[in-house]
Design a protein around this nucleic acid. Structure first.
Lengths: 343, 343
DNA sequence: AATGTGCTTTGAATCGTTTCATTAGCACGT
DNA sequence: ACGTGCTAATGAAACGATTCAAAGCACATT
C-alpha cells in the first residue's frame, strides 16, 4: 500500500521536467515560467510531495530552526518568552523548537547535543550551570548562542537579562512615594541571586529617603506558605512595630503575606499595609486585593534574544551585546487605594 | 580561523582508517576492535567532530525525534505532560521537540509542516481544530500521530484522554460521602466541552443519592474573578438557601468562591461549606484553606502517549488505541476537616 | 544569415552520512 | 602448503535535495 516516499525526482518525472526545475519552483519561483510552475505545482499536489529537510539541509549547509532551551517550560516567564521568540523567528523565516532542561544539567547537555547535531542556526539558552566551555565549542564550530536571563561574565556571547537591582529599587521607591516609611523586605533563607539583587535595590531606595527604615525578614523558601508564615509573625506585632509597607522578593511570598494580613489581624490593604510583589504572575490580579508587582518585559526579551541571535548568525564576528532590560511597575490595589468614599 | 566543519572523512584521515570504520565506531562499536575504536575516538575528540544529523537521517531515512505540539506551553497540564513525554522518549533513545501552537491553527499547521519536513518519527498533537484530513495525509506518508487530550471520533489514530464525566462524578460523590446534600455546580456560561462533561458526572452522582439536590450556576468565564462573583451571590443567601457543598468546574473558579465565602460572610470551610475544584493546579495547595481537587494523571498520559506512538512507529498497521484515563481525587482541607479538637 | 540578448531549463556534481558486499588478515586443523 | 572460518576494515553506492555552468530557445539586431 504505502510505497516509498515521494522525492523531488518523482515530481520531476510526473511533471516532465528536470529535478533542478522542481527545486527552482520550490526555492526560486521567479526563475520559472508560469506554465512550468503550475505544472510542477500540480504534480506536487497530486503526489503529496513533502520536501525532505534533511537533504535540503545537507546540501544547503544550513537549517531554518532555532533551538531554545529553557529551565522550565511550566514557568510563565519562559513560556511567554518562548511565544514571543517563536513569533519573531517566524517573521524571519525560522522556526523555534523548544527543549525543556527542567534544571537538569544532563537534560540540558542532551538538548545542546541534539540541537548541534541538527545544525540549528543557533540557540537561545537559559543555562542551568556554567556553560562557558560548551559555548566556546559551539561557537567554534559555527553555532552561535545567546544567553537568556543570564549574562556571560566573559562576554563570549550576547545575552538578554533583567536588572533586578533596578526592580527592587522601583518597588521600594513606589512604597516610599506612597508615604510609607517602615519598610519590610521579605526574601528567602537560601541565597537566590535574584533575591539579593532585589534587596540591593531596595536598600538603595531606602538609603535615598531620610526617615525611612528597612527591615529584612527571611522566609523558608519562595512559596505562598512560607510567605504566610512570615506574614503571621508580622501581623501579630504590636501596632508600634507594624511596618506600613512590605516588599516581597516574589509574588508567591506576597500572596502568603496578604493572606496572613487579612485573616490573622484583619489589616486593611493598602491602608494599613501596602504590599508589593515581584514577577507579576497571572495570579497577582486574582488575589483578594489585586497585587502590585514588578514585571519583566518578557515579550521584548524573547524578541530581542532572537534578534541578537540573528545578528550573530549573519555575521559571526559582530560584537557580542549584553542587553539588560529594566523591569516595569504594575500598580494594583495592594499599594494604591481606589478613590475612597468621602470621609 | 574557523575552517569548514569537521566531517567523518576528516576523522577517518586523522585516525588512519576508512570512513566506514568511523561510522561503525559511532553506530556499531562492537564491530570495531578496541585499538581502532580508541584511536578513532581520540581523533573525534581532538577534532571536535559532531555528527551531522541531516546526513545521517538522509541516509538512514529515519530521525530520532518526536514532535510534540501543544495548545499552550504555559498550561501546567501540558508542561508536565511534556516533561513526562521527554523522559519516556529519552528512555527509548528519542528526543522530544516541542512546538507551541498557542491555540492558533496557523501556527499548528506550521509546526505540522516543519515536523513533517524534518521527518520526525511521529507526532503527539493536542489539536486546535479538526485535524482529520491532515492526519490521514501524514499517516499516508508514514508519520504516525497520537492525539493528546482528545479522541479521534473516527479512530484513525491512537489517543490519550481523560474521562471528565468520571471526574465530575468523583468530585460530587466525594461531597455526598461527606454528608453534603445541597450541592451547587459552578460552570461557565460558554460551552466548554470539559464543563459539560464534568456536569454530566455531577448529575449522575446526585441522581444516585436520594435526598440530594443539584443546582447549576453559571460564571462569566473560568477565572478567579468570575468565581468570586458567583461566590458573593451565594454567600449572601439566607441560611436556609445556602448550599453545603460546591463543585467548581475548575480550580480558579473554586478559589474565587472560597475568597467570597471567607470574606463576605465568614463562612467556615469546610464545616459550613465544602468546596472542591478541578485540575489540581499548583495553587490549590496554597489557598487559605487548601483546596480539594480532581487531578488528571498527567505524567502517565505523557508516557502513554509516547508509548502509543512508538507502537505505531514499530508497526504502522498495529491497531489504533484510544486510552482513556480516570482522574484522581486529591483530598485537602476544603472538604475534609482536620481532626478537630474535642468538643 | 549570422550574431547577440535574455529568459528557461537542464543535469551532473555535491553535501556527510550509512550500508553492505568485498577484501584482508589471521589462526587453526589437516 | 592449503583450505576454512572468523573478525576487522575497506570503499563505493546510495539517500534527496540544491547549485551552477552550460545549453536551448525565441526574438531582435546588424
Amino acid at each position: 500500500m504505502s510505497s516509498r516516499p515521494v522525492s523531488i525526482k518523482d515530481v520531476a518525472d510526473r511533471a516532465g521536467v528536470a529535478v533542478g526545475t522542481v527545486s527552482n519552483v520550490l526555492n526560486h519561483p521567479a526563475r520559472v515560467s508560469d506554465t512550468t510552475r503550475s505544472r510542477v505545482q500540480s504534480a506536487i499536489d497530486e503526489l503529496g510531495f513533502v520536501r525532505n529537510d534533511a537533504a535540503r539541509q545537507l546540501r544547503a549547509g544550513q537549517s531554518r530552526t532555532i533551538g531554545l532551551i529553557v529551565l522550565d517550560v511550566g514557568n510563565p516567564f519562559f513560556s511567554s518568552l518562548a511565544r514571543a521568540a517563536e513569533d519573531c523567528a517566524a517573521e524571519n523565516g525560522s522556526t523555534v523548537v523548544l527543549g525543556d532542561s527542567g534544571q537538569d544539567p544532563g537534560r540540558e547537555a542532551r538538548y545542546l547535543d541534539v540541537f548541534e547535531q541538527q545544525r540549528v542556526q543557533g540557540m537561545l539558552v537559559s543555562p542551568v550551570g556554567d556553560l562557558g566551555v560548551r559555548i566556546d565549542e559551539l561557537r567554534g564550530r559555527g553555532t552561535p548562542v545567546v544567553l537568556v536571563d543570564r549574562v556571560d561574565p566573559q562576554a563570549r556571547c550576547s545575552s538578554v537579562s533583567v536588572d533586578d537591582v533596578a526592580g527592587g529599587y522601583l518597588a521600594v521607591r513606589h512604597l516610599l512615594d506612597a508615604g510609607r516609611r517602615r519598610i519590610v523586605f521579605v526574601g528567602a533563607r537560601a541565597g537566590y541571586r535574584q533575591v539579593t539583587d532585589r534587596l540591593t535595590g531596595a536598600r538603595q531606595a531606602v538609603g535615598e529617603c531620610a526617615g525611612a527604615v528597612l527591615e529584612v525578614l527571611e522566609a523558608e523558601d519562595m512559596t505562598v506558605l512560607a510567605g504566610r508564615e512570615v506574614g503571621e509573625v508580622v501581623a501579630r506585632r504590636s501596632p508600634a512595630e507594624l511596618p506600613d509597607g512590605i516588599f516581597c522578593a516574589n509574588d508567591l511570598l506576597a500572596i502568603g503575606v496578604m493572606q496572613a494580613a487579612l485573616l490573622i489581624r484583619d489589616l486593611r490593604v493598602p491602608e494599613d499595609l501596602a504590599l508589593i510583589g515581584y514577577d507579576d504572575i497571572d495570579f497577582a490580579t486574582s488575589t483578594v486585593v489585586p497585587l502590585t508587582s514588578v514585571r519583566k518585559p518578557t515579550e521584548l526579551m524573547g524578541r530581542t534574544a532572537v534578534e541578537l541571535l540573528l545578528e550573530q548568525i549573519e555575521d559571526p564576528d559582530s560584537p557580542r551585546r549584553q542587553v539588560v532590560f529594566h523591569p516595569e511597575l504594575v500598580e494594583r490595589g495592594s499599594t494604591t487605594a481606589l478613590i475612597t468614599a468621602a470621609g
